[in-house]
């Protein structure tokens, strides 16, 4: 049998080793958290820079050639769209995994929210002033809600089908850290989830399958996509 002295040594050595391995795990976890945050932050920073560049471009070109301004600005949309889409996916993917950088993660989520609204404003400007024909989808969802999850899958798939040319801006209706969500909910009269607004023209409530989404887009593409006034009446499906 192991004597008392050896037992104590064994318990102590195991404790030291456990602390060392546990600490390594913590450090690695923290490192991963940091990598995740940086991964998102890099894209957000790039997106901010591109957006600012876009706004400067807009101001400058508008002063002498409005048509050229529209062409240049429209070319910017896919890049900004891709960036925001990527950040959105990463935020969903990493959610719940960030343990040590929670504040940072919350900050990134808020930043992403604001950037989405700013991007939406830019698109509204383009639609109003440049006959922008791209499809803009506002998707209102709830977390931990099966129908919303399914709708997310369907919209993702739809976007792939359209070679990522759609602009899908998703908003968590329960996101309480940014008052802007209240304004959006009021504007579109959001009462249930999932709710989708297509080009400010059509509104659907409840789950819409990929095939149904395609049908709606066909309808949209066959009609003018010009953005109407802000008090526009939606077609509910």
């Amino acid at each position: 049998m192991v004597n008392d002295k050896t037992k104590k040594q064994l318990l102590f050595t195991s404790l030291v080793l456990a602390v060392a391995i546990f600490s390594l795990g913590i450090v690695f976890g923290w490192y991963l958290d940091n990598m995740r945050s940086n991964d998102i932050l890099e894209i957000i920073q790039q997106n901010e820079l591109d957006t600012e560049s876009y706004l400067v471009e807009q101001q400058y070109i508008e002063s002498f050639d409005k048509e050229l301004a529209c062409e240049v600005l429209e070319n910017r949309v896919p890049v900004l769209n891709d960036q925001l889409g990527e950040v959105g996916h990463k935020l969903v993917y990493y959610k719940g995994k960030n343990v040590f950088e929670k504040d940072e993660f919350d900050y990134l989520q808020r930043k992403h929210f604001i950037l989405k609204v700013r991007f939406w404003n830019m698109l509204s400007y383009l639609k109003k002033n440049c006959d922008y024909e791209g499809i803009v989808i506002l998707y209102f969802y709830e977390e931990n809600h099966q129908e919303s999850t399914n709708q997310g899958y369907a919209l993702d798939d739809l976007n792939k089908e359209y070679n990522y040319s759609l602009t899908i801006l998703s908003f968590d209706v329960n996101y309480d850290k940014e008052p802007l969500i209240g304004i959006l909910k009021d504007r579109y009269d959001i009462e249930t989830t999932p709710t989708i607004i297509y080009n400010d023209k059509i509104k659907t409530e409840g789950f819409v399958s990929v095939d149904e989404l395609k049908e709606i887009l066909k309808v949209l593409q066959s009609t003018s996509s010009r953005l109407e006034d802000s008090d526009q009446i939606f077609t509910n499906i």
């Binding site: 795990g25 690695f28 976890g29 991963l32 990598m35 995740r36 991964d39 993917y93 990493y94 719940g96 995994k97 343990v99």
Partner: peptide, 11 residues
């Protein structure tokens, strides 16, 4: 993405 998606509880 798979590496970055690792949950710390897995360690």
């Amino acid at each position: 993405d798979a590496i970055l998606g690792i949950d710390i509880i897995l360690f």
